[in-house]
Simulated assay, not measured.
Amino acid sequence: MGKASTVSSLLCCPCRCLFCGVFGCLFSMLTCVFFSAGLVALVLYLLFRPHIIRATAVSADLSNFDLTARTWILHYNLSLAVQVRNPNKRIALRYHGVDAQAFYEGQRLVQAGLPDFFQDTGETSTLSPAFVGESPLVGGVAAAAFRREAAEGAAFSVNVKITAHLKLKLWVITVPGPKPKIDCPLKIQRRNATDGAGTPEFHPTECRVWF
């Protein structure tokens, strides 16, 4: 008898709150809401099987990367191509507010906006950010790192980060999505470091992607 009464109080509906007790009814409602949300999320996951996007830096050209003595002003001209792939079979992606930033020794060099684009299921798109300008290197650590890498073949460690806002197209429905962050740690040789032997070789680099 006691067990039946307990079960009845846990399964009460809002119409019987006066009889079940406010807290018991509230607990029952919250349990139903969480259970329903979890069930819907599981069904959607099994139906669409979402996968995280993939990104690869396939080419890069560092035509200028020089540090002015004493003032520590870094002059740079970097262009690269990053391929972004949508591996999903049932979810198309719409990117907007795409932004690319370049860093050297943790210091931001410049920011470059990129055009919005749409990516169908299984499609690969190429982003082509370009960074041209000059920036002061703050602190002696960054300047020392530049001198070391310049002496070791002029191959510099540049980090390129790309962010965007996503909208997910599920069949005919478009819903807001997460904000992907693409991090590409690159090792790029300055073009004039080859002494006229042509463009330095660049090895494609997998980028880290998270939300």
Rank of each mutant, 00 (worst) to 15 (best):
residue 121 T to H: 08
residue 154 A to R: 05
residue 197 A to E: 14
residue 185 P to K: 10
residue 141 V to Y: 04
residue 74 L to A: 07
residue 94 R to Y: 15
residue 200 P to W: 06
residue 165 H to W: 13
residue 211 F to R: 10
residue 36 S to W: 13
residue 36 S to G: 14
residue 84 V to T: 11
residue 163 T to I: 13
residue 58 V to L: 08
residue 110 V to L: 00
residue 16 R to K: 15
residue 44 L to T: 02
residue 66 D to S: 12
residue 89 K to V: 08
residue 128 S to Y: 08
residue 207 C to D: 11
residue 53 I to M: 11
residue 132 V to I: 11
residue 184 C to Y: 09
residue 145 A to L: 04
residue 129 P to L: 02
residue 88 N to T: 03
residue 44 L to N: 06
residue 19 F to Y: 08
residue 171 W to H: 03
residue 204 P to K: 01
residue 77 N to A: 08
residue 172 V to G: 12
residue 163 T to C: 13
residue 187 K to I: 11
residue 57 A to Q: 03
residue 182 I to Q: 07
residue 168 L to Y: 06
residue 76 Y to V: 04
residue 40 V to D: 02
residue 137 L to D: 04
residue 171 W to C: 00
residue 103 F to W: 13
residue 71 T to R: 14
residue 167 K to D: 15
residue 89 K to A: 11
residue 191 R to L: 03
residue 49 R to M: 03
residue 168 L to W: 05
residue 196 G to W: 01
residue 24 G to N: 12
residue 203 H to I: 11
residue 47 L to D: 00
residue 14 P to I: 05
residue 101 Q to M: 10
residue 26 L to D: 07
residue 51 H to L: 14
residue 93 L to D: 03
residue 133 G to K: 01
residue 40 V to F: 05
residue 9 S to R: 13
residue 43 V to D: 01
residue 42 L to E: 07
residue 114 L to P: 02
residue 183 D to V: 04
residue 6 T to G: 02
residue 45 Y to I: 00
residue 209 V to N: 01
residue 102 A to G: 02
residue 97 G to D: 07
residue 5 S to Q: 13
residue 9 S to L: 15
residue 185 P to S: 02
residue 103 F to Y: 14
residue 147 R to A: 08
residue 165 H to E: 13
residue 162 I to M: 04
residue 81 A to M: 03
residue 4 A to S: 10
residue 65 F to L: 05
residue 126 T to K: 09
residue 117 F to E: 07
residue 29 M to R: 04
residue 2 G to P: 15
residue 53 I to T: 09
residue 57 A to N: 09
residue 15 C to S: 07
residue 127 L to R: 08
residue 170 L to M: 08
residue 119 Q to R: 10
residue 201 E to H: 13
residue 190 R to P: 02
residue 141 V to I: 08
residue 160 V to I: 15
residue 31 T to L: 07
residue 83 Q to M: 00
residue 23 F to P: 06
residue 114 L to K: 01
residue 110 V to K: 05
residue 84 V to P: 06
residue 27 F to Y: 09
residue 145 A to W: 03
residue 197 A to F: 15
residue 122 G to D: 05
residue 131 F to H: 02
residue 29 M to Q: 10
residue 181 K to F: 15
residue 66 D to Q: 12
residue 173 I to A: 13
residue 176 P to Y: 02
residue 90 R to N: 14
residue 80 L to Q: 10
residue 143 A to E: 04
residue 12 C to Y: 06
residue 55 A to P: 06
residue 142 A to V: 03
residue 184 C to V: 06
residue 33 V to Q: 06
residue 100 A to P: 01
residue 119 Q to E: 15
residue 121 T to D: 06
residue 179 K to V: 03
residue 117 F to S: 08
residue 158 V to K: 01
residue 51 H to I: 11
residue 10 L to A: 12
residue 169 K to A: 12
residue 31 T to S: 12
residue 144 A to V: 14
residue 174 T to Y: 10
residue 135 S to T: 13
residue 119 Q to W: 05
